[in-house]
Design a protein around this nucleic acid. Sequence first.
DNA 1: GTAGGGTTAG
Length: 583
Amino acid sequence: MPLPAQLVEDPINSLIQRCPDMRTLRQIHAHFLKSPLSSSLYALSKILAFSALSAAGDIAYARRLFAQIPNPNVFSWNSMIRGCSLVSEPSKEPIFLYKQMLRSGFAYPNSFTLAFVLKGCSIISAFFEGIQVHCHAFKYGLDSSPFVQTGLLNFYAKCEEIASARSVFAEIPDKNLVVWSVIIGGCARVGLVNEALELFREMQEFGVAPDEITMVSVISACAKAGALDLGRWLHAFIDRKGIQLDLKLSTALIDMYAKCGMIEKARELFDKMEVRDTMAWSSMIVGLAIHGHVKDALELFKAMLDSQVKPNHVTFIGVLSACAHSGLVKDGRRYWSTMKKLGIEPLMEHYGCMIDLLCRAGLLDEAYSFINDMPIVPNSVIWRTLLVGCKNNRSFNEVENAAEQLLQLEPLNAENYVLLSNLYASRCQWEKVSYMRKKMKDHGVRVIPGCSSTEIDGFVHEFTVADDTHPEIEKIREVLRDIAERVRRAGHEPWTSAVLHDVVEEEKESALCEHSERLAIAYGLLKTKAPVAIRVVKNLRVCGDCHEVTKVISRVYGREIIVRDRVRFHRFVNGTCSCNDFW
DNA sequence: GTAGGGTTAG
């Protein structure tokens, strides 16, 4: 007489619960196959679940096992769908499995199935498949399951379909911590910073206390907005509420402080970290590179390698851009081969850094061959980088070809016409200048005035190109003229951050506080006005020490001044672009 | 019997 199922399944179950590795699992599997009830689907499902889901599991083994099950039950399908979305290289496999399950007709999806397949869709941003799963949620009456709802919300957020995410969010009756975190993270990811911060406030009004995961999203929203005051407040909030400063939250704070100009604070946090992963190291290296602290960035990269943490593609963007900004051509080339040796396949951004590096060093021909040897099709950024380099190098003769490639790729981006127009002007090719303007007009490309803002004592001074409405505009102009004159007298042309630094230091000596305030405001104005001002800020950006100058201005002024928008000149908006370089 | 949310990028 066969043993009751309970007696066979329970030992298998308890063995699997204590199973440490696949070797043991194989033994359990063999034992199971020889046992009297080897046809028990329940026990087989447990073996499958371990292979597919456990950290010590083996998805290939799970696939082989699954293929041998004639009519898998929903639990087994779920294990496979979930297991296949946990692999390091995500694919459409979870979606294919889900479709197979529906076609099999032997198992119907439950709330677990939909939650798992939605996760699979979120990982690869499979928008059209996810929408079908949304329909299935209604069809199978699973749309009120909290896990399916959160899965849908997360899916839309990951696909950057914020309107859909918000409507799913609005329909969730009991919004828990996870639901709030997903919507806040979704808004932060697409740059809807104010919305993210507003939701964070609302969440607390609803009596839901944030945890470290929520805080990562909110802090990253601050980093994107350059909202230092709020970021610091949130840091204090984390301390006050005893929220755990784990690896990811520390990294988010480092990124926020670096992006908001407080690189020392970022470094302090980084140095205090007991465990650092690739992202933590990369954030700090990129932060130092943005601030122009090239030596520190490269030293830190060496320390990273010494601590056996593997760098990734983002780390190398930091390292290569640091080299580009300080003219370290030889080092840049060395890091490029290190990257390849480590098996990191260069992405478009890495090629961009290398071309930038060569152009800044005046090696235009080499940059051009580098582009021609690229194994991937160069994008507009690559051609633009080369053309920016052409502006400072008149001996380079491949401008026409590069210009053609650029305009073919992006015929509606005003920035390109402006760049080419200025490039031809610098070569006194006036016919081409007017041709560019005509072409731009023919394409109906409009320029949206660029703007920037400077915050002093909580008051935001905003400046837009050709806008004279600031109440102190005349006095500000006076300061600008004064600076320009002093720079001209000093014989510095074009301006560099070092020159502005000297001017501001001089200002400190003279202790003219009122003048200093205007200097700070003028700094905001510099970013949108006169050509010379654009050169200054461009140089600052080149040197990567925009915040360095802001800090100097802050010291003179004696209070904290924040440059908010991190010098974002060109912004592609619905086929038109914001651009400050067009007079 | 199984579940949902996190950081770095010119």
